[in-house]
Write a protein that binds this DNA or RNA. Structure first.
Lengths: 181, 181
DNA sequence: ATAACTGCAAACTGTTTGCAAGCGA
DNA sequence: TCGCTTGCAAACAGTTTGCAGTTAT
């Protein structure tokens, strides 16, 4: 099953907006693995070989993935991993708050292994090449709180998706980031 | 199939934030119906009895609905309406930009018949009672454009979902809006 | 030992589709 | 009339689950 090429772009920092840097440090990823093991222990769940392989697969990548992609990648490491185990492990990963489940209106879900690193990041999706850029904005978070307050709610989490077209593509016929085939 | 009670709240206007008023005027709804008929004609599609019933059902309500709900409601008016026709009509409605398709992370989609009235509105979902509040914020739109610009994109559309808890519920044990069962 | 975990395959759910009959322009 | 539309039922895709055997603690 072929899926969309979801890449993360290199930072383009600007005031008040933090953009995820490509290639989060290895230590952060190792810490996430450790935290998930602790999460399992806390819930009296077992650290099986299959779970270890899946955890390593999840946190050794920086990319957003689908359940099916995770299955493929995990099977490259251990071909005995079953679809059921992947589907049973994903809810644990999201429950632990180390992975974020996302819906882009496709019939399948996407998972983001960078969540614990910056839990408030939002996404911009390029309509031209279907890439995803992550970004944080303090201003947006402020306004969200304000809106919630005005409506009589306490905002617990937000999900902002921007759908956009690539300026570079319009200028030169190709994205700066990657050719748009 | 029982679905969530998605209601629209009455306005709580505050500076810079426009909230949808409950009960959009009848004329707006009739205009939407007319526009959709025109859309069908423009595409050389036929105005069948089934389509008329579905259109009336969609624009006679103010609420967000699922495909299954639309089927139920339409069948109350004409019991011969089939699931297939509903599923075949929904893409036409979204393509016409009179209805907006939304994903709240559930396995089924929601549809918003208020879209043409305020195409940039966003949603706040109450975690306590699963109601949806619509709101517009010019500030958010400004920042979105700014972020897009800084990242080298032109933002075409946005989708902001706030997940929140109800302050009134916390104070008094019930929502102002509706008892939270 | 024993409770949690696994792979398998079947089940489930929302949505789509092929087909023969029906109906609008 | 002609070709778009319809209802039906089967197909489809992603996800979940029951079960019997396996494994971590």
């Amino acid at each position: 099953m072929n899926r969309l090429p979801f890449l993360r772009l290199v930072s383009l920092t600007s005031p008040g907006i933090r953009v995820r840097i490509n290639g989060v440090q290895k230590e952060v990823r190792e810490e996430a693995k450790r935290k998930f093991m602790e999460f399992l222990e806390r819930k009296d769940l077992r650290i099986t070989n299959q779970r270890r392989v899946i955890i390593d697969t999840v946190f050794d990548t920086d990319e957003h993935f689908t359940a099916e992609q995770l299955l493929d990648w995990s099977r490259e490491r251990d071909s005995s991993i079953s679809r059921a185990t992947v589907y049973r492990t994903l809810p644990l990963l999201t429950e632990s708050n180390l992975v974020h489940e996302m819906d882009f209106g496709k019939p399948y879900k996407f998972y983001d292994p960078n969540y614990s690193d910056s839990p408030n990041h939002n996404h911009l999706i390029c309509e031209d090449c279907e890439k995803i850029v992550e970004f944080d904005s303090e201003k947006i978070e402020e306004i969200e709180q304000e809106i919630g307050h005005n409506l009589g709610f306490t905002v617990k989490s937000q999900n902002l998706q921007l759908s956009a077209t690539c300026n570079a593509l319009k200028r030169s016929g190709a994205c700066d980031n990657k050719p748009c085939n």
